[in-house]
Amino acid sequence: MTHAAELPAWAAWCVALLLLLGAGITLIGSLGMLRLDGFYQRAHAPTLGTTLGTAFICGASMLCFSLLASRPLLHEVLILGFVTITTPVTLMLLVRAALFRDTAEGHIDDIVRRAKQTPGDEELR
C-alpha cells in the first residue's frame, strides 16, 4: 500500500470508515443468509449488501481514486446505478420462481393463508 501515504490524513480516515461500514453492513446481510428461516425471509438478506454496503464501498473507492488522481472520478456511480436497477429484477424473478415452485408442489397454502388472513378467521387456523 505505497499509495496510502499519498492520501491526506482526513481522507484516509474517511476511506477507512466508509470501507469498514460498507463491509460490515454487507457481512450482516450475508449473515442473514445463515440466520433467517425459510427462503422468503432469506431473500431479504442480500438487499443490505446491495444498498448501503455497495454505496459505502463505492463511496470509499470514489474518494480514494479522486484524491489520488486529484480530479473527480465517478466511475463507481455506474456500479451503484447498475446494482440499484438490477436488484429489483433479480429478486422479483427469484421470489416469483420460488412462489411458482411452491405452488406447484402444494406447500404454498400456509404461507399465503397467513398473509391473506383477516383478523376474523384467526381461530380457524
Binding site: 446481510g29 431479504h44 438487499t47 443490505l48 436488484t87 429478486l91 416469483r96
Partner: peptide, 9 residues
C-alpha cells in the same frame, strides 16, 4: 427493493 425488509413480488 432498495429498502431492505420489503420485496416486490
Amino acid at each position: 427493493t432498495s429498502t431492505p425488509g420489503t420485496l416486490w413480488v
